[in-house]
């Protein structure tokens, strides 16, 4: 089982770094993340200076509260836009080019193929989160930084990223057109974002359900340094559900291929 997953993952990683898509996604993320970061640090410095000159203090005025948390919100939105690009071609392109036939003729289960691809794109996201977090950690050199909270926030962002990748694989297995797979993943994420916002407006008991489905809320818990089992279960449950759907869609090809 593991050998097959690793075989697919290794090949995906080789291809990912030899094609521009992973590099472009990484470059755009680091550029946008860097811009947010510089902007937030500048604002923080300006407010610090004002507080020093005015002698007044603001509540929750820490690097984590003013820089890291806002940065995490920005990263979450960036992930909605960027991560579908990592998964859009993973199955749809193989299906279009015909390499999926070869892959599915090997003694690999659909779950092994999906997991191999998921772990490969997950590694790219892990690199993104690590590089982004390393930038934030640099603040610790010039000020007091709650390192545990930063790492927990990064873990939340990583879990969220994995859930986007798993959803992206569902749409990549669903359509042979990678642009369609990208657009469907993006729209589904935006819809989930909207559902979260509707949770504030609807009446009980639906508000609780919709609030639970709000992924920004769960990432928020991580960013406050709170490790909630419900948030971990939310993301892990979503990932398992999406990966199961992607495997089922892939298996369906053996039953419903057109002549």
């Amino acid at each position: 089982m593991i050998r097959g997953i690793w075989a697919v993952c290794e090949r995906e990683l080789r291809s990912a770094w030899r094609q521009p898509i992973a590099w472009v996604v990484l470059a755009i993320y680091l550029f946008a993340h860097g811009l947010f970061f510089v902007q937030l640090v500048e604002e923080y410095s300006a407010l610090s200076f004002q507080m020093l000159t005015s002698g007044r203090s603001l509540p929750d005025f820490t690097l984590v509260d003013r820089v890291c948390r806002s940065l995490l919100v920005g990263d979450t939105l960036l992930f909605i836009l960027l991560l579908p690009a990592l998964t859009m071609r993973q199955i749809s392109e193989e299906s279009r080019s015909g390499t999926l036939d070869l892959l599915m003729s090997y003694p690999l289960s659909e779950a092994q193929i999906i997991l191999g691809k998921f772990f490969a794109s997950g590694f790219v996201v892990w690199v993104m989160v690590c590089l982004g977090t390393a930038e934030v950690m640099a603040l610790g050199l010039v000020g007091h930084l709650e390192v545990d909270v930063v790492w927990l926030g990064a873990s939340g962002l990583f879990l969220y990223g994995l859930s986007v990748l798993a959803l992206g694989l569902v749409f990549s297995a669903w359509s042979e057109n990678q642009i369609l797979a990208f657009a469907a993943t993006l729209l589904a994420q935006l819809l989930l974002l909207l559902i979260g916002f509707w949770g504030i407006r609807v009446d009980p008991p639906f508000d609780a359900v919709l609030r639970y489905l709000n992924f920004t809320g769960h990432v928020g818990h991580f960013s406050y340094g709170v490790l909630r089992a419900s948030s971990v279960f939310f993301f892990v449950g979503l990932i398992v559900f999406y990966l199961y759907c992607a495997s089922a869609l892939l298996a369906r090809r053996r039953w419903h291929e057109e002549s």
């Binding site: 090949r11 080789r14 291809s15 030899r18 094609q19 080019s97 015909g98 390499t99 036939d101 070869l102």
Partner: peptide
């Protein structure tokens, strides 16, 4: 018309 992984 075998399709192969062209980047390997």
């Amino acid at each position: 018309n075998v399709s192969l992984y062209l980047d390997l």
